[in-house]
Each structure stands twice: as C-alpha cells, then as structure tokens.
Design a binder for these strands. Structure first.
Lengths: 330, 330
DNA sequence: CCATCGGCTGGGAGCGCTCCCAATAATGCA
DNA sequence: TGCATTATTGGGAGCGCTCCCAGCCGATGG
C-alpha cells in the first residue's frame, strides 16, 4: 500500500498540513521542520496521490496534445517531430506532463472527447485539425482551454491559434522561382479540407498574379502531403503539361515524391521547391520554405499556459513568419 | 461550473447512487429509471470527474507509453510507428487512454518517474530501453505494472517482456541465401552493446553452421544500424573478400548502404538481405526479415492489461516470430 | 387481507489531498 | 521580564465519486 500524507505526517511527528506545505513549497515552514518532513517523505518513498490532489485543486498538471492523424502520418511527417520537440521543451520547463494522442477514427475521437472533458487535463493542444472536427467547439463549451496549431478552416470557430503564414511562405517560393526565370510553374497542393492547403495555394496564386502570369488549372494537382501522393501528382502534371519548368509542392515529402518522378523521367530541368524545410529537405538538397516548427510548438504551450493560468477573454491568433531556404533544386 | 453527480441526481429526481449505477452500467436499475437518468445526464452535459472516481476506485484507465528516445529518433524510425499503431489499436478497443511520453534527459526522466509513480496511470509500456535505465526496477518497487518492448540487456532485470525472435529471424535470412545457392555469406552487424545485435549475429552463425558452412571472421563487419555504416562495412568486406556472394545486414538501412556500394562497384551478383522490412525495404525491392511490429504493440498491451487486471506472479516473456519477405535483392 | 420476499433505491462513509482558520510557539520591543 | 506581534502549526471541512448497507415498495402466496 502506498503511504498517505497522513502517514508521512505521523512518521515525521508533524501535522498533515505541514507535510502538504512542504510538498507544495510553501515558504511558511521552518527550515528544521522542512528537513524532518523531507526525510520522512524519503524514508517512506512517498509520492502524493494526484487524483486526490487534483480533486481539490481542480488542476491535473497535464496537457494533452491531440494530433488528428493516423500514427503513420504522424510518424512519417517530420513537421510533427519539430512541433512536438518545441512543445516538449517548453512544457517540461513548466513542470507539466504531456499527454500525446493520435486519433483519426470517430470512435477514438468520442472516447478521447469524454476523456479530455472529464477533467483529466488542464488544457489541450490541437494539431492537424480537419474541417469537420467538432473537438475545438466542444472543448470550448466545456471550458477546457485549447490552442490550435494552424488556423481551422471554419472561420466561425473562435479558438486561440498559433499559425505560420502559409500564404506568405508559398508566395516566397513562387516569387523565387519566377526570379530564377521560371514561368510555367505547377503546384501540388495538400488536402483541401485543411486551411494550410488553401493558404499555400493562395500564396501560389498571389505569386503568379504578382508577376502577371496567368494561372492554369492544368498546373494544379492535389496530394495529401505524403511522398507517394507527390509522385502521383507529379506524373499527372507531366502528362498534362510536359512543358512545365517548375513545381511548388505544399510539403517536403510531396516535393521529394515529385523529385523522384522527375528524376525517373529524366527531367532535371524542372525546378522544385518544397514546404517545411524538414531535415529531409536539407539532406536532399531541396529548396524549401522554412517553417519555424519548433517555435510553433513553444508558442502554443506559452499561449495555453497563459489561458490555463488566468483566462484571457479575447481571442489570440499568433502568426509566425516563414522564410525561404535556397538549395540545389531551384 | 461542471455539474456533479449530485446535481444530475436532483435533476432526475433520483438518488446519487442510482446515477452512479447508470454510469457504471449496473444491471440493477429499472429500465425506466435508467432512461430518466440518461436524459438528465444528457441535458446537463454531465461528464464524471475522473479524479474523484479514480480516488476511490484506484484506477485511472490510462496507460503510459514511455519511449526513451528524443523526438527526432522516435519520429524518424518507422519501427516506432508500427509499434505505436499496434498499441493504440489494442488499447482503444479496451476503453483505456494512451499517454505517450518521450524522455531522454535525466531531469525529464525524474519528473516522469514521479508522475508514473503518482498513481496517474494503471500501467506502463516501455520502449527502447537503455541499459542504465532505472525506470523498470523503480516501477517494480512501486508496484506499477510494466511491460518492456524488447528484452533489456541486463538479464537480472525481471520484467515482463514482449520481444521479437531476432536470432530466428537472422537464421531465416541466412538459410534463404543458402537455399538460393549462396555459400560465401557476409554479415553486417549492429552495435554489439545491444542485445538485438548479438542475437542477429547468433542467428547468422546458426544458419551457417546448420548448412555445414564454416564461418570466417573476415565475413563479419560491424555497423551501427545507419545507412552510412552499412556502406562503410560493405566496402571493407569487398576489400577483404572480393569473392563473397551474399550479405545479411542487421538492419534495412545498413542493407541499403551496402546495396549502394555494391551498385557502385558493379557487383549486381551479390545478394542482399536486410532486417526490419520497413517501408524503405519495400520501396527498394530489398529482401528483408519482417518484424511483426504491430503485433508487438498489440501483445504488449494485452500483457499489460492482464497484469493490471489480476497480477500474475510469474514473469512473462513473449517472443514473436519474424518471417522473411523475399524481393528482388536475393 | 396480511406477512414475506426480493428487486431497487437512497444516503452515510470515506478515498487522500488542499484550503482555511484558529491555536500555539517564537520573537521583538519597552 | 512582560506583553504585543508575528511566524508556524494542526485539524476540520469538503472536493466528487463509489461502495456498502439498510430501507422501501410492489408482488406473491397463504
């Protein structure tokens, strides 16, 4: 049986409250008493029961990270690694625990929702939100603080958000290609039920428009951010418009897929730019739009802790600025 | 303020206990009463407070997965994706929540240990354990059920384990090469401070011995599982024994490195077999020993739930059987 | 028509902890 | 040395829930 605070108190010859004060670092305990109590805690190998504590404090010191993707996606896309690293770094320095969940199926989702609403976490970080996801609004109703990574598609959703300026990033990529003399620039988009994809496509269009280039539906192909989908899209683009001279892919993985197809087709003349600037891009010499992913994770946590600390009434939207990293493929 | 069970009871015009019975699916509630209560629960959007519940039941319905690696490693190694998928699948079907943690630094570890010992989880799954890790024994002392993925190096550690039969896997690979008529089979091992590497080398030797082939130290080269180390080892092997006709590499990445060198050297005659059967192997047409990673996750959970359910006194070691996937490189 | 039985139901007790407030010990100052 | 303060300390109350046990009520049988 694990010892209780009462047993520690008895063992140290003090009252229950004094032990509690020591545990919570209260300054109003005499040094001598503190040492006695700490000795007792150690001797009994006492660990406070978090359930009991959180029942009264209404805090759990746990924050959930919900990634609305399958483990495959999560573990193969380096974007998540970066964000998670930022989150983990910022969170451990605040003494909170990170509860990481991946949920894609609807039964998983509802179990998760009950869990998150059940007071088991102080707040929720949401990543890779899809447009039909009711989680943010449900959390809002339940009063559970939440921060989204990436703006939701639904503009009616008044949630706190940390995002990257995807449109500006895509614009940078396309402008760069134009400056390098490319004119027939294709794009491979992400899934259009995610705002990132919409924004990156928007930035692509801005880039073309800004240079007075007319856009063509033939030069736009859809993917799902994966390497394979990038390859498939590239093949379709090459079939439709063999004259294209550049491709902007909305993710590094898709860019790599496109590169693979281009190489197989002997089309070294086509410039490629990706999005993310993941380690993969660096390794492959891929020009890419750098997302400050780690900062994003860090900022999400900062914002969430602020919300947990003392509810801010207004809505927060923090937009981080990407930049272009030029390498061999452009 | 979230409603309590008492408020639901008042709203439904029943007693506290009856609501509790409905929540926990007790059969001794009249159908009519049950419906009234469920209506009240719905109208009040009631969710039970898990802290209060777990304080009395001493269960949390949460299981922790601890991966002793940095997020980079975790997110780049396909092994983890497979295991996590198996774990998640098996766990959600049992209504428990998965709490995933990555911890590498020692400050992270001790925070984690306090957390795990604090009664916040019913059990712990450990992956990628390093030999100096005190976590399993500490958990044992605290009486927290734990299951390791992969046998620990320290044989004195009496923990419950789910592992893959690495020796048998390597044996399969070598026997396959022999059946294909290969006789001068080299191997590229992993780091020998890991039990997997030792086992895979053992299986390689078993394979040779079984076929009456004498082994030669010249045909054994060491690597560290990485692509680069595979290439380096392959060059050394070719230099020492240009007459070799096959290579068994203890990881897919090393096999790919070896393949690269062989291709550069124009040695298409040398057969190559890897280990892991990761997506990379499939993509490269590499014959490889398939590890049932997903099953491993699933079995870890099964074992853990059994331990949580009714403590089994004896030690469990479950060894899963790998199989060979034959592709173009052999 | 009344006693008996069993299925349902309600409320007390208590899980281990923090918070609050009263009580006590220690300290300072005249 | 005595009294006013202030620094420490201890214990009651209660967080929301489950478990246990006693009581209720309707149905059944005599």
């Amino acid at each position: 049986m694990r010892p209780t605070i009462e047993q520690v108190a008895a063992h140290a010859g003090v009252g229950r409250s004094t032990v509690s004060r020591v545990l919570n670092g209260s300054p109003k305990v005499r040094q001598k008493t503190r040492l006695t109590v700490q000795k007792a805690i150690e001797e009994l190998r006492y660990t406070p029961n978090r359930a009991a504590r959180s029942l009264v404090t209404r805090r759990t010191d746990t924050v959930a990270l919900v990634i609305s993707e399958s483990p495959e996606r999560v573990f193969s896309d380096p974007f998540f690694a970066g964000v998670v690293r930022g989150i983990a770094a910022q969170l451990t320095s605040s003494g909170k625990q990170l509860l990481m969940t991946m949920a894609r199926s609807s039964s998983e989702r509802s179990a998760l929702e009950a869990y998150l609403g059940g007071g088991h976490v102080d707040g929720v970080l949401l990543l890779s939100l899809h447009h039909d996801d009711p989680l943010p609004s449900h959390l809002g109703e339940l009063g559970v603080p939440a921060v989204l990574g990436g703006r939701p598609l639904d503009p009616g959703l008044t949630a706190h958000v940390v995002d990257v300026d995807n449109q500006a990033g895509a614009y940078l990529a396309v402008r760069h290609l134009i400056e390098r003399g490319r004119r027939r620039i294709a794009t491979i988009t992400g899934p259009m039920d995610m705002l990132v994809s919409v924004h990156r496509l928007g930035g692509y269009r801005d880039g073309l428009t800004g240079a007075g280039i007319e856009e063509s539906a033939e030069l736009v192909a859809g993917g799902d951010f994966s390497e394979r989908s990038g390859a498939v899209a590239m093949r379709a683009l090459l079939a439709r418009r063999p004259d294209l001279d550049a491709v902007f892919a909305a993710s590094d993985l898709m860019a790599l897929g496109a590169l693979r197809v281009l190489r197989e087709a002997g089309r070294a003349d086509v410039a490629v730019v990706g999005f993310d600037d993941s380690p993969l891009a660096e390794q492959a010499g891929l020009t890419s739009v750098h997302q400050p992913v780690e900062d994003m994770g860090r900022e999400m946590v900062r914002l969430l802790l602020m919300l947990i600390g003392g509810g801010t009434p207004s809505r927060f939207v923090l937009v981080l600025t990407p930049h272009l990293v030029t390498r061999e493929t452009s």
